[in-house]
Computed example of a mutant assay.
Amino acid sequence: MLDTTDLTAEVDRLADRLRSAPQSRLQRGAAAAGLALARELAVRAQRVESPGSEPRIMPDAGVFAVADQLAVAGHDLAEALRTAPTASGTEVAEAVILVRDAAGRAGV
């Protein structure tokens, strides 16, 4: 069974790979894949923390910021799931799958 440490490890691994990717790879889609993932993880965290509230969408801060945005969103989701009384292991597993799929799409 996966737990939130697995999620943060996967997020950190992808964020590190994005940080070390060349600008050309980031511009060819790796940054877009990272931002889409960061936005999805941020929305999931907001839904756990504030059910019923309209989630705010993470802005595009540029190709060189996407790794940090991903790390923040992923760690926020992990903490929200870790502390939420109703969170399930299924939510963690789904998030880990999202991260792994995004890593494949990013090509980093």
Rank of each mutant, 00 (worst) to 15 (best):
L2W: 04
T5D: 12
D6E: 09
L7R: 03
T8E: 04
A9D: 11
E10Y: 04
E10L: 10
V11R: 04
D12H: 06
R13T: 15
D16F: 02
D16K: 02
L18D: 00
L18K: 00
R19I: 03
S20W: 07
A21W: 08
P22F: 03
S24E: 14
R25S: 05
Q27R: 12
R28D: 13
A30M: 02
A31E: 01
A32G: 14
L35N: 02
L35S: 02
E40I: 08
R44V: 01
Q46E: 13
Q46L: 10
R47F: 03
E49T: 11
E49N: 14
E49W: 01
P51G: 11
P51M: 02
G52A: 12
G52H: 11
S53I: 05
I57Y: 10
I57E: 09
M58W: 02
M58Y: 06
D60E: 14
D60V: 10
D60R: 09
A61E: 11
A61S: 15
V63N: 06
V63K: 03
V66K: 05
L70G: 05
A71P: 00
V72N: 01
V72I: 09
V72K: 05
G74D: 02
G74E: 10
H75N: 13
H75K: 09
D76G: 05
D76P: 00
L77Q: 07
L77A: 11
L77E: 07
A78L: 10
E79I: 10
A80C: 10
A80N: 06
A80L: 06
L81E: 09
T83W: 13
T83V: 13
P85D: 15
P85Q: 12
S88F: 12
E91W: 05
A93P: 01
A95N: 10
L98A: 15
V99Y: 04
R100L: 14
R100T: 14
R100D: 06
R100H: 07
A102L: 02
A102K: 01
G104R: 11
G107W: 07
V108P: 08
V108I: 13
V108M: 04
